[in-house]
Design a protein around this nucleic acid. Structure first.
Lengths: 334, 334
DNA sequence: TTGTAAGCGTTATCAT
DNA sequence: ATGATAACGCTTACAA
């Protein structure tokens, strides 16, 4: 910038004005500056600009579980789009659901001077947010509450922290109810560990639907160790062989896909409703009914909330829960 | 940092040494510094650190078409993993395949002082890389060559630019050959516009396989306006009704899925091989045979190449082509 | 409208 | 081993 000023025979400040788009500049000087910029191939250094107090980096940090997972990548895209609209870049990092790595990433992003943080808390939490140093930029937690007491309670005192969740319990309840309405009396729950927040919520929705139908839930209907499609497939295959259950609520899309694999292998199916939509759901016959979360909306809301905070919104921390929608494609019937 | 120094009653430089992990510090002073850091909740400012000459930001920029697209998100994840291993963060941005937006992002990332750039050139190119100002950090182009002359030729003079591609032509040739070996005499090509580099390559592979089999390609076998699954489905449905062709090479996975949709709707199928694997490919009966690109390897290679450049590798610009693997699952047969 | 000088948080030089 | 001081590229009072 000094060089530009020298070549254009103006002061540093005038160049600064020019590159910042200020208007009160003599057209002649503007011209000389523009020429000098092109001649020298000058490009402003935003990192340097952002170290001034009161100036921001215009970069946001996003921590998700795994960028390669469609849930996260769709979420990330929605966030990126909203961020871009307001002139923010996005540093996206994967925690692999590991608390330690997550915490490292938080520290690194803060050192990198991001203006705000969007975080999907890892399944295996690390340090509590209560232990965070005082000066933290606004944070929005997505999909799962942060690890401290009740969601939205604690962080309000320390930092501006909002939370955006999906209605996991309500969606699971609707899914299970759809099975029951189509005649199921012994619907299974096939999913991952109940140590995971969303699984816990979905399980409680499943139980609520059973209770509402006057059905007594049985432990033998419950599979909570389906970490991947093959676990789920194995569990569902057992269900087809020993028909203890008469329908399946697949609590995530890996479980849904596992169920389809088992159906195909055994050559027989059970009524099925899954949580979370997936590409192949429309390809089978019948199509797979699912509870669909509006993931892009979750991302837009989260990013919008964060950017609102950065624009000076200091209202109380909020917890928003987005509705989940039941999409019936036929697989809920016998 | 000044405050820490004051509280710990040491000089600024000693604190700097401490936070940079230098060893030559009196243990007593170290202790005082550590205390002061905790007491003040001090966190280093990496943005400020990076403005020193010779110092780097330890941030890489990645421009892809669309983060929500599985091809890109898997690629991004592999890149992120490799970057993380070497201590780099990754700013990921989507161009939406639009040259103008792409160019804006390049400028912004350069202003943000990223140490290097990983770029999937947009389908609708903007400014040529020849026009870029001189001082540019190393760049790696992925999946498609950059927009200037032959891949890898031009940028060598201006900037360190490598290119990592998949063997689109070879993969398409193998896919088409598999159809022919299973009796196809009139295999269709269903894909997107040949204005797209990868489509052009795949089309030439398809033609090569036909030529090798002594089959004269017909214009009526060629569909190049399948931009999404429904376009492809419509095209394939026509093929099922008026059987001009006897097999289908789907040149991308949207076309494969469209073909499956058409098969399901009409209740009849044709031999099919697709380019690019997809989740639902194993769920049908028969499973869908595909040409599979090793996307994570592409990401690892690209990131590794870039980091190598950042570590001082100044060898000539290279163009690497990764093999595509034919995965037969049954759909290639009648 | 333009310029001068100070300062942001850090690291590097060079002395001690 | 430690520290004083300058410098990085930029913005912002404040002055002219």
């Amino acid at each position: 910038m000094n060089d530009v000023a020298r070549v254009a025979r103006v002061s540093l400040k005038t160049v600064s004005r020019f590159v910042n788009g200020q208007t009160n500049i003599d057209p002649e000087l503007s011209g000389r500056i523009a020429e000098a910029i092109v001649a020298l191939g000058y490009r402003r250094n935003l990192a340097a600009a952002s170290i001034r107090p009161g100036r921001t980096s215009k970069v946001l940090g996003l921590i998700i579980g795994d960028m390669a997972n469609p849930f996260y990548s769709v979420l990330a895209r929605a966030i990126e789009t909203r961020a871009h609209e307001s002139g923010y870049l996005l540093i996206t990092a994967s925690s692999d659901e590991d608390g330690f790595r997550h915490d490292e990433l938080v520290d690194r992003l803060l050192e990198q001077q991001v203006d705000g943080l969007l975080i999907v808390p890892p399944r295996h939490p690390g340090r509590s947010w209560e232990l965070m140093p005082q000066r933290i930029p606004p944070v929005v937690f997505i999909d799962r509450p942060a690890e401290y007491g009740a969601p939205g309670t604690m962080p309000a005192d320390t930092v501006l922290a909002d939370t955006v969740l999906a209605d996991n319990a309500g969606g699971a309840r609707a899914a299970t109810a759809a099975l029951v309405e189509n005649g199921a009396r012994r619907p299974a729950f096939v999913g991952d560990s109940l140590g995971i927040y969303t699984m816990r919520e979905r399980h409680s929705g499943y139980l609520a639907a059973l209770a509402a139908a006057g059905i007594q839930a049985q432990d033998s209907w419950l599979v909570t160790d389906a970490h991947g499609t093959s676990d789920a497939a194995a569990a569902v295959k057992r269900m087809l062989v020993e028909p203890d259950v008469d329908a399946i609520f697949a609590a995530n899309n890996r479980s849904s896909i596992g169920a389809l694999m088992a159906f195909r292998e055994v050559g027989r199916r059970l009524p099925l409703v899954g949580f979370d939509d997936f590409e192949a759901a429309v390809l089978g016959d019948p199509g797979v009914s699912v509870v669909s979360q509006d993931i892009p909306e979750m991302g837009r809301r989260a990013a919008g909330l964060l950017i609102g905070r950065l624009n000076g919104d200091t209202s109380d921390s909020s917890v928003q829960t987005l509705p989940a929608r039941l999409v019936l494609r036929g697989s809920e019937r016998a």
